[in-house]
């Protein structure tokens, strides 16, 4: 039972991971990334906890504190995570305005259609001179 919190963190990590892989919607994927990030944060914060310790704000008469170093790493990581999530969301907005969708399957389908249309045009362009030669 000593590792129970870590097991729950692993489950949380995997729920976020699954949302990231299995969702077709790009915003849903970023939410999955957020869940994944929070799980990683918890891994660090759980490591910092000391039995019987208090928050690392030094005060006379208190001898046992939790480890402040992981707190520092995660504090900055949270602010950076929101900045990077904003960057991802901005990309989603741009993709939506270019494709009219933010569903991965539709994006791939759109790309394939454009590609096959271009290939068909190229084929026509290449065939045209040969016809001229043969006639």
């Amino acid at each position: 039972m000593q590792h129970a919190p870590y097991w729950l963190v692993v489950v949380l990590l995997m729920v976020g991971f699954y949302t990231m892989i299995a969702s077709a919607n790009l915003v849903k994927r970023l939410i999955g990334l957020g869940v994944f990030q929070v799980a990683v944060f918890f891994l660090y914060i759980l490591l910092a906890k000391v039995r019987g310790g208090t928050a690392p704000i030094l005060e006379e008469g208190i001898a046992l504190y939790s480890n402040p170093l992981p707190h520092v790493l995660i504090l900055t990581a949270i602010v950076v995570s929101v900045a990077t999530t904003a960057l991802g969301l901005a990309l989603v907005v741009r993709i939506y305005h270019a494709y009219g969708s933010m569903d991965e399957d539709e994006l791939v389908q759109h790309d394939n259609e454009v590609e096959s249309a271009l290939a068909a045009r190229d084929a026509r362009v290449l065939q045209a001179p040969r016809k001229a030669e043969s006639s």
Binding site: L89, A90, V93
Partner: peptide, 18 residues
Amino acid sequence: MLFYLFASPIDADDSGGH
């Protein structure tokens, strides 16, 4: 800055590299 950018409507004529 992020809020201003996300809260303003996007120009229709400025949609990516098309």
